[in-house]
Simulated scan of single mutants.
Amino acid sequence: MAENSAKRLKMDHGAVVIGTHNGHFHADEALAVYMLRKYIPTYSAAKLIRTRDPKILEGCDIVVDVGGEYDAARNRYDHHQRTFSTTFPDRETKLSSAGLVYMHFGREIVSRRLSQPEDSEQVGLVWRKIYESFIEALDAHDNGISAYDSAGLEAAGLKKKFSDGGFTLGAMVGRLNPNWNDVLPEDPVEAQAAEDKRFELASQRIGEEFDRDLDYFTAAWLPAREVVAAAFAARREYDPEGRIIVFKSQSAPWKDHLYTLEDLEPESTKSVYVLYPEKPTADAKWRVQCVPVAKDSFQSRKPLPEAWRGFRDDELDGISGIPGGVFVHASGFIGGNKTFEGALAMAKKALEL
């Protein structure tokens, strides 16, 4: 493993050297460099050299995104070779330098944050989740892989309804490169120094986003797993078929965990509504949220009744026949009631309609 081979790195006058390419930079090597320097002690004080000179790269202790070689034993992590086809375990997207570095060093990063062994279940869960939620998008972007099958979209006649500005993680880094008409220093050394300064800014910027993901999935997402599992286990207390999930004290990030738990019981009826208090106090109002057909979908498995949508307070009470109504969103994906009993009544009645 690269983690072990890192201990055998050759030192250049006491300095460890990370090598990557110069010229136009991308999100994958910017993040790869950041992860190594921020989270792996061996590289915390590493010098960065950006070059395409094979002789200089040969002297680097670790090389990412350049050099035409993937060999973890030698700390070489390029993905541009014609024969390269490596993917993250159980995923289909070909890796970039970000994915390669994360695949080999990510467990160590998560392990240090959780203070748990690298082979623990919790470390494995977060390691995989961060890849799927963050790193994989960079791998796809750098390898020119679309999130959707373009031929399938064309065949279905589907087109974008509006421009999203092309703002992706990769684009965020890409815009930090010089513009085509920027005036650059004439001296090659000065020009390279200016380019390296831009790269350092890009590496820090994409790294900050990675930090936020790491913080979220270790400090919030992972602890939510137990909360969701407890609510899922108690789901038949509120509906014989288990279609209503209740978080008694406060809500937690539930979608990922709920879908995972459902997958473990494929024969069970799918959850339809999730109930939770707006805040963890005794007088809190309650929400009734519909479970989406998929995590990122705006389509609900069963929206709240059409007749309730867009109404509030007394009007909603009169239409639904349930006192304490606060609102139902115009799209029917969420509603509210002043009490838990009222929210539960809304969910049960909605199941019947």
Rank of each mutant, 00 (worst) to 15 (best):
K255R: 01
E265V: 12
T269N: 12
V272P: 05
D263A: 13
S249D: 08
Q250M: 09
E262W: 10
Y273V: 00
D263W: 04
S251E: 08
S268H: 09
I244T: 03
L258Q: 07
D263S: 07
T269H: 09
K255C: 00
E265Y: 08
E265F: 01
P253H: 10
P253F: 11
H257P: 12
W254H: 05
D256N: 02
Y259H: 09
L261H: 10
V272A: 01
S251Q: 12
H257A: 02
K255F: 07
V246P: 03
R243N: 11
E262K: 13
V272W: 14
D256H: 12
L258R: 11
L261N: 07
D263K: 15
F247G: 01
T269C: 09
T269M: 11
W254E: 03
Y273E: 09
V272Y: 13
L275N: 14
I244L: 05
E262L: 07
T260W: 07
S271V: 02
E262N: 08
W254N: 08
Y273W: 08
K270G: 03
E278V: 15
K270S: 10
A252I: 03
H257S: 06
E265S: 15
E262V: 02
S249P: 14
K255S: 01
S251K: 11
Y259R: 05
E265K: 03
F247T: 00
Q250Y: 13
I244E: 07
A252E: 09
R243F: 11
V272M: 03
I244S: 05
L275K: 04
S251Y: 15
S251L: 04
L258C: 11
Y273H: 02
P277M: 07
D263M: 10
E265D: 12
L264M: 08
S251N: 11
L264V: 04
Q250N: 06
V274D: 14
R243E: 09
S271K: 10
E262P: 15
I244D: 06
R243Q: 12
K270D: 14
V274G: 13
P266T: 08
D256T: 13
D256Q: 13
Y259L: 08
S249E: 15
L258N: 10
Q250R: 03
S249G: 12
Y273C: 00
P277Y: 09
P266L: 06
R243W: 02
L261E: 14
E278H: 11
K270R: 04
E267G: 05
S271L: 14
W254Q: 14
P266H: 15
I244N: 03
Y259W: 03
